[in-house]
Each structure stands twice: as C-alpha cells, then as structure tokens.
Design a protein around this nucleic acid. Structure first.
Lengths: 231, 231, 231, 231
DNA sequence: AATGAATGAGTGTTCATTCAT
DNA sequence: GATGAATGAACACTCATTCAT
C-alpha cells in the first residue's frame, strides 16, 4: 500500500542478513512467544515480527508451525539430560547433595530465561502436540528420571537412603510436582492467589524429597503402633 | 434422504423435545471431547454431533464455548472439595490414614470416568483458558491444599509427623506430582513408554508422602546404628 | 431448565390473555424497537420479550419478521392520508394556512410517540425492505403529495400563489427535506452536532415553503433585472 | 475443474500479485454492492467475488467490513466539500448562480456513477452504521451546509435575498429534500411509480430554493392582510 | 534468500424460522 | 392459543499455508 521509492541510485537491498542466523533468531522468537502466550495463541505473524522477518521467511526455514515446536523440544532434549549428567559429574559429594543440585538446577531454577521458557513450552506440549510430548518424554524425561533413580540407588547402597523407597516413583513425582508448581506459579497469577516464596517451594521440596528417602524412626512403641495402624 | 413414512397417522417427529436431558448431554459430550482432544481442538460442531443435536441447540443452552468449560469447572469445584471433606469426616482414624485416602481418592483414582476426564480438562485449562484456570485454582486447589495442610498440622500436634516438615509445600508438590503423572500416563502413551503399574505409582507416592512427614533418624546412637544397619 | 411445580391444585394457566389484543401488542412492540434500534438490529426475541410473549407467539400471528414491517407500513398507509384530508377539511381557512397545518401536523410534529416511530420506520423501509418502500410510496406518499399539490393549485387559482411554481416538486422536496431533517436530528446525535431548535426547523421550513410559492417582486427595474440575470 | 495446461515451461500462475490495484478494486466492488444491496445485506464473500479475489484478500487489505464503509465515507468526506468550494471559486457570478451550481453539482447530479453510489451509501449509513453516519454528517454535511449559508448571507448583503430568510434551515431542508428525492427515484421504482423527469426535479427545486430566498411582494393591502392572518 | 500478496478451510456465533408439545 | 426447544443457513473473521515475484 505504501508507495515504494523506486530511485535507481541506492540499490540498498531490503533484506540483507546472514542466512546462518535466521533459523536461530526465528526459533528464539517462537520460544519467547510460545512460553508467554501459549502455542495455539501464537500466530506465525507474531513469530515473524518478533524475529524481525516476514511470514514467508519463517516458512523458508521451517516446514510449518508445529516444526518450530518440535525443534524447540529437540533443543531441550539435546541439552537437558547432558546438563544433569554434568551436574552429577561436577559434584562428587554425597548423593544427597547431588540430588539436591539435580532437582534445583534441573527442575526448579533454570540457568537462564530461555531455559525457563523451554520448560514452559515443554509442559505445554502435552495439550498442544501430544505426539511431540510423547517423544519428548521418551527422549528426555525418562532418561532424566533414570539418572535420578541411579543416584537414589547409589544412596541406598551407601545406606544413606532406606531400601524400601520406591526410587522410580520418587524421581517421577517430585520432579513433576516441582516443575508443575513452579510453572503454575509463574504463568498464572497463582503467585498472588497463593502467596508464598518460590525459593521456599524449591527448598522445601528438596528437603521433603530427601527426607522421604531417608530411613525412618522405627524405635519406640508409639511409632510401631502407628505404623501398624496405618497400613 | 431418509425415507419418511407417509402414514397420515403418525407424522413421526424428526426430533424430540428433551429439555431436561439436553444440557446434561451436551455437557457430557463436551467433557468427553475436551478431555480427549483438548479444549481448543474441539469444535462446537464436534460437541453438537457428539450430543446428537445441532450447533444451534448447544447455543440455546450455553452462551458460548467457554461457558461450557466454565460450567464443567464449576461442577468440579462444587464437588471436589466437598468430597475431600467427606472423606476426612467419614474416616476418623489417624491422620496418616486420612491423608492416604485423600490422596488416593481425591487425586489419583477418580470415582468414575467423568471425574477422570474432568481432571484432564482441569490441567488443560492452564494453557487453554488461563483465566479459568486461575479461578479454578482459587476455588478448588487452594482449598484442597489447605485441607491437607490442616491434616498434616494435626499430625504434627500428635507427634506423628515431624515439626519441621513444610506442610504447605508437601500438600502442593505431592498432589501436583501425582495428578500430573497419572494424567500423563493416561493420556499419552506414557504408560507404554514408561511401563509400570498405575497402582504402584499411587501406592508409592502415598508412601513417600507420609514418609517425608515422619520424624527422621537424626541424632544419637540409635540413628547411627540404624544407618549402619540399613546400608 | 427450571423445575416446574406440578401441583394439581392450582391449574393456573401459564398464559391467558385475550387473543384479540396480542397482535396489537406485538405490533406495538415491534414498532417501538424498529424505530429505536432499526429493523435489522431488532431480533424477534426482542420483539417477543417486549410484547410479553414468546417467539412462537409472534409467529403464530405473523408469518415472519418482514410481515411485521409490512403491517406497520400498512397502518401508516391507512391512517396517514386520511389524517391529512381531515386536517384540510377541518380547516376552512386560506390554503396557506391549510398547507401550514399539513406540513406541521403531517410531516413535522407527529400527534403521538407512536406516529413518530412510524415515521422513522417508514424512512427506514428504503434500505430495510425496498419493495415495501415502493409500495408505501405508492399508497401513501404519492397521495399525500397530490393532496398538497391540490392545495397549491387552489392557491394559484386564488392568486395567492404564483402561477409558475412547480407544485409537484414543491410538495415532494419540502416534505422529504423536512421529514429527513427531523429524523436525522432525532435519531443521531445530529441535534448536538448541529445544534439548533427543532421548532425553528419546522417554522422556518414552513415559511420557506410558502414563500417559495408566493409571487415574487416583479415590479420595479431592480427586480426585473435580477430575474433576467439568473435565468 | 478448469483444465490446467501441463506445459512444464509456463506454469501459468493461478493468481497474480497486484497489490497496487487490489485495494482500489475491492473498495470499488464494495461500493457497488453497498449501494445496490445495502451495507447489511452485502456479504464479504459478495465483495470478494465481485472484486475477483477471495475473502482472505479482502481482510488482508481491510481490517473488517465496517472499515470498508468507513474508507468509502472518508473518500466522500475528503472530496465532497472541496468540490463545492471549487465550484464556488470557479464561478464568480452572482450568488444565485453559485447556489444553483452548488445544488446541482453537489446534490443532484453526481459527476460519475461512483459518486452517485457513494451518495446512496451515505444516506444508508443512517440505519446501517449510525455512528459512521454521525461522523459523516459532521465531516461533510455540516460543512457543506455552512458553505451554502455563507452564500445566502452574501446574497442578503447585496439585497438579492430577503433579510428574514432562515439561511440555516434553507440550506438543510433543500439539500436534504433534493438528495433524498433523487435517491428514492433512482433506487426504488419510484421513477416509474411517480413518473416525472429527474431534470425537472432538479430544476424546479433550484427554482423554488432561490425563490424562497427572494424578497416577497409586500405592496398592497391584500398581501399584508394575508401575512397577518397566517402567523 | 526473502518477501508479502493471496488463498481457503475452518471457527465461533447469531438468528429467523419451524415444529413438537 | 401459546410455548420454547431445536434447527440450519448464514456470516464475519482468523490464520496456517502457498506461491508469484
């Protein structure tokens, strides 16, 4: 609609940027938007604008909208487990302190904004693209969980943790609970509706996690009776 | 296309008036579809067809699509907390056994298919209708959590639970973790990707929950001995 | 949806009113709404509600929505010209004073609210139901115009009006101009955008109307020259 | 259905990019349809088809349906008053001849079909889009009226027109009457129902207009008496 | 490599009209 | 007579996707 100047003098190409960076930029924009508005509510024009390109360019680099989501999930898949493993390797202390770090770094306090967003998108996959979600679970979550399970087993071996703790379930429930709570608190107004410190949520979750794995008090009649009653 | 009987007697109506059942049926159809395809992916025509009516009828009973969702959420809100309270009242045993039941009945094993679907929809609200989600959290989850917190506090009072357990966080993380895990397992193929028994998930979660609240082996020889024994 | 009491005691019929009045009431409601919201913007439910009945009842008495409009137009057609004739008959003064009254009573100051509304609807016919509009023109306006024309001709005969005035056009332009201006002023905010007294509009229009029919200054050189220039 | 040439050379595009012409064409199509069927009765698909594009394209260039109407009104607003002023400037004769031209050119004989349609749409705004109508009145009609008023005042100053003529009302009633009559004649079958020459309508209206402004016969007892009676 | 004009299949929603009761 | 449940044909508008340039 706007009339374009046709002056022959200045050729000045309307677009001129290194094609290498484009995909990255588009993906980054998509991530930002998916995380804040949700996948469905984000339009391709939104993404294009945020990436400083036009719709056509997005389609030049990515087959379609869902591909963007898939690519983002892949990024997460590729990095996430590696990070966790690095954390474990880099921290030769007792398993309890390794688990502490894994939970904190891997599931509660993302290293940077982009990893936080990635997590939001990740959980959203469940409703936005169930198939992708299944794949992501397989690629990432299950591997992360088994890493945690391994740590717990090691703890059992050293006597730090009780033998009868269900490591598989512990790994799953605590990580899921923590991630979902943090997610809800950050995206909805849950933080204001249900006010309390995010840090407390993380710290206490870790504490509960470790405590749930530790040997319990068995001595004394009271305790014994209680156990009997409860079963 | 359908051949009409031309008997003058029975004109055989093309549709029947069933004002009493329609809303229920429509709501049921919506629930089924929302749970399986997600709110956004579900069309009003889908709902109408599934309910055996036409689009217009859906709009005759419900102002718009979101109202359907809201109504479903309301149903849940109205019943959910009440059920939990009933469970507590109906079970005068020790808090640990009350908590066990609350977790199982309230968050893991829905009484019927429709309550299961309701739960699926509920979690989906987070991305489909953030505002409704926030309302739902406020109406239901927070109240459910505080009910659990109260039980835990009672357990602390009786010495059954340790004083330093963070009841607030425990209530939140365990319920969220349990619900989400069950949800994922049931909606995706997670059950096949990550094969293990749903029942084990529930039982172990409850066990971990209670264990995380119990007094730990801390100081003194007893603890030391125990640790040694257990390794 | 609301449960109806089925007590056999009080039969009390839900609807019980003289069938004679219904059509009138419905028509009155339709008129009110058409005039204030416009034909298109008025729904049948609006009308039914305003008439204190339900949609079905409206259809029991009138074939469809447009029929309501047609019936209203008919009412106007039936009464309008008769009124004008009555005005003329009831006022045996000079034609100028008859015309004054005809313009005022017939086109500017409706006897009651309902006649004002009728006028609004009437003009709206042009876009809402062109065919009805044509019929209305034929039934009413043309007859009203020729009544005015007759008066003008009588004035010409008595020498009160100039011979060369185009009675046909005068009747048409002044009535149309007056009606439309009053309509615009009353329905839009024209009254506030273009502030001046409605009464002045009516009075001055009548004055201009009569003046345009009166013999011009012919005597004297100045006037004669002016005429010559203009032709 | 259309047979596609399979020559590998010329893939023969299914549609052409004509960003420069599209908006114009769409607007033109909309104008044509709005004028003939009315704004409300015109579908966006109608417009798209008439413009040789698809619905999407219409929305690519115009935010929504009402915007099309608004844009058309703007065009009129922008040009209409300017034209009138040009007429006055370009015709340095006596005010009576200026008024003649203004009435004829500005309100009776549109320069081309498109301006005639614009006028039709304009009057229709009253019921289709009251708000736009109000704006249009403000932007255009009031300004046009005051231009006419100014001319009349000038005529009063030169003694060509009588001092007591209500210029404001004259400007309003004659223009409205003329426009509406022409509109009715052209859109309905009024022309055939109420047969007489359009040209006569215009000429006579102008004549009546000017005559209504001229000094009246005041000489003679008869006239004087009449005036007294009538007030 | 990049653009952005053009497409077209949906989608929610409205509402006059019908018809079982 | 009267109701109001149920219908179904539109309709405006959105947006992922395609493709001419």
């Amino acid at each position: 609609m706007a009339v374009k100047k046709q002056t022959a003098r200045a050729p000045e190409p309307r677009w001129a940027r290194r094609p290498e960076e484009r995909p990255r930029e588009i993906l980054a924009a998509a991530l930002r938007l998916f995380a804040s508005k949700g996948y469905t509510a984000t339009t391709l024009v939104d993404i294009a604008k945020a990436a400083g390109v036009t719709k056509g360019t997005v389609y030049y680099y990515f087959r379609n909208k869902e591909t963007l989501l898939a690519r983002l999930a892949e990024v997460n898949d590729r990095e996430a487990v590696g990070e966790l493993e690095a954390i474990v390797r880099g921290n030769p202390g007792p398993v309890s302190s390794q688990l502490r770090l894994v939970l904190r770094r891997g599931f509660a306090e993302p290293r940077d904004e982009s990893r936080r967003q990635l997590r939001v998108v990740y959980v959203g996959l469940h409703s936005d693209a169930p198939r992708l979600f299944a794949r992501a679970i397989q690629q990432t979550l299950i591997r992360a969980w088994s890493l945690i399970v391994k740590l717990i087993e090691r703890g059992k071996a050293t006597g730090e943790f009780r033998q009868d703790a269900d490591a598989q379930v512990a790994a799953r429930v605590f990580t899921a609970g923590l991630v979902v709570q943090m997610l809800w608190r950050q995206t909805t107004d849950l933080a204001s509706l249900d006010p309390f410190d995010d840090a407390r949520m993380v710290d206490s979750t870790i504490e509960l996690f470790l405590h749930s794995l530790r040997p319990a008090v068995r001595i004394g009649a009271a305790a014994g009776r209680r156990m009997a009653t409860e079963s």
